[in-house]
């Protein structure tokens, strides 16, 4: 099958394939057929996913299909809006057309969260140091994405900003390196350390506030077939002016929180249970609280050194 990096294809071929819905994105364990029609999401995709392998052959079998479309015919012309359509009934909120990159990223997240059952999925960021992974559990306002982006600067591999994807047989985490989603104040923080060139334009006044995306590095894409064994789970909490602090928590409680964050654990059933229990063997869980990115990095370094040889 013909599959090259997106940036190796002629621009017009990519645009044509995206418009006609024959482009397949081959990222980590998933192949996704993508159909985009507005200029903004097409530019966003070509920029943020430039290093990703894609195919423009319509005979490719895909795990998911995602189409961005107007919510109805009327909205094609008047106060133009867009919704992600992952191919099943879902009450997605239509967004103004200028926010189509957000609609696209949300749509891809929905596709994975609601249609993948081969792997147990937990809502968390994952970065890896070689073959050892760190899970950064999602808590609203916890600073998961900022910490994920900051760890990329310390040469951790980005596995995913959104999903811990557990291989149920190997008890390892799969990489799915998509753009890291940044909100509000964290946008400038990440621009500061990663460089403006690595962060997308900001979408203002979205339902989630201001949103921008930090691009995965080519090295994240090159190593994406390399799964990693999780060693440590962190529950981060960013509090302005807080003293840096870490506290070990009961692994059983951490497990319950991971299960509660999963869109598909219950659906998979017994294999998800045994896979998760195997994954947890020998792991440690900590809550970390901090008031600055430097402090969060120092805490991670210290815990990592203590637990991962």
């Amino acid at each position: 099958m013909n599959r090259r990096a997106l940036s190796d294809y002629p621009r017009s071929d990519v645009i044509h394939a995206l418009r006609s819905g024959t482009l397949a994105l081959d990222l980590g364990p998933f192949l996704t057929r993508i159909k985009l029609s507005d200029r903004r999401s097409i530019d966003f995709f070509r920029d943020m996913y430039a290093a990703c392998p894609v195919s423009i052959d319509k005979a490719v079998l895909c795990d998911f299909s995602l189409c961005l479309r107007p919510p109805n015919k009327f909205r094609k012309y008047f106060r133009r809006q867009i919704v992600p359509d992952p191919g099943f009934q879902f009450p997605a909120v239509p967004l103004p057309l200028e926010m189509s990159p957000l609609a696209f990223e949300m749509g891809l997240n929905l596709s994975v969260a609601l249609q993948c059952f081969r792997f147990a999925i937990f809502h968390a960021g994952v970065v890896a140091d070689g073959d050892n992974a760190l899970i950064i559990a999602a808590k609203s306002g916890g600073g998961k994405s900022t910490l994920t982006a900051a760890l990329m600067e310390e040469d951790w591999r980005l596995l995913s900003d959104e999903f811990a994807i557990l291989d149920l047989d190997a008890a390892t985490l799969k990489a799915y390196p998509r753009p890291v989603s940044l909100k509000n104040a964290s946008i400038d923080v990440v621009r500061g350390f990663a460089g403006s060139g690595q962060v997308s334009d900001t979408l203002h006044d979205t339902p989630k506030g201001a949103i921008a995306y930090r691009r995965p590095r080519p090295s994240d894409i090159e190593t994406m077939q390399r799964a990693a064994k999780p060693r440590l789970i962190l529950f981060p909490r960013f509090t302005d002016g807080a003293q840096a602090e870490s506290r070990e928590i009961d692994l059983a409680d951490a497990a319950m929180q991971l299960i509660a964050s999963s869109p598909n654990y219950q659906v998979i059933g017994e294999r998800a249970f045994s896979g998760l229990m195997t994954m947890l063997e020998g792991m440690k869980a900590y809550e970390i609280e901090y008031g600055s990115t430097e402090d969060s990095l120092a805490l991670v370094r210290e815990l990592w050194k203590a637990h991962v040889p």
Binding site: P29, L31, L61, C62, D63, Q115, C116, F117, R118, Q266, V267, I268, G269, R271
Partner: peptide
């Protein structure tokens, strides 16, 4: 069947057994 189709079918099997 091929690898990708096998994965797609396994995924569907897991969903329907739920």
């Amino acid at each position: 069947v091929g690898t990708k189709l096998a994965e797609i079918l396994e995924n569907a099997r897991l969903r329907s057994s739920y």
